[in-house]
């Protein structure tokens, strides 16, 4: 399954799709990139006159690349249709270190902790273009192929 095929079945669309490319895909983990658009809607409110990417959006980016894209790859052989899989975030524990401003590109590196009984738990890190660690932690979710 290629990066383009994985991205094609993601159950998201603008303005809530936070995956541009996937650069490494395996049974054990996944790496992907996203560039935050200068005019993304959340910068108008977070913060007033001082746009910074919200932590929840960074968490979402980590979850979309690190857990959902990886989950789609891991379940590629039991897919029943071309429809988007049903996914649900079940827990996240993330620490944040440096801010991400509009227009910045980030790289998400996710390592699988386990995938059993439809639950995927991942150790996820997000870096900026200077290779600084922006945030890291654990994300878990359930994935059901349709």
């Amino acid at each position: 399954m290629t990066a383009a095929q994985i991205i094609a079945v993601l159950p998201y669309q603008a303005p809530f799709l936070f995956v541009d490319t996937l650069t490494a895909i395996s049974e054990d983990g996944i790496t992907g990139e996203y560039t935050f658009k200068e005019d993304a809607y959340f910068y108008k409110g977070h913060f007033k006159d001082h746009p910074v990417t919200p932590g929840v959006i960074l968490t979402e980016t980590m979850a979309q690349i690190g857990a959902v894209c990886l989950g789609i790859y891991l379940t590629r052989n039991n897919k029943k249709s071309n429809r988007a899989p049903q996914v649900a975030l079940t827990s996240s524990a993330i620490d944040f270190y440096v801010p991400v401003y509009p227009g910045e590109q980030v790289t998400v590196i996710s390592e699988k902790e386990y995938f059993r009984f439809n639950k995927l738990k991942c150790k996820v890190q997000l870096f900026n273009a200077q290779d600084q660690l922006v945030c890291r932690g654990f994300i878990s979710g359930m994935i059901n192929e349709k």
Binding site: A88, R116, F117, N118, K119, G141
Partner: peptide, 11 residues
């Protein structure tokens, strides 16, 4: 217990 944590119980 939610379905995700039920998996943790089993593990």
């Amino acid at each position: 217990i939610n379905s995700a944590n039920l998996v943790d119980v089993i593990l």
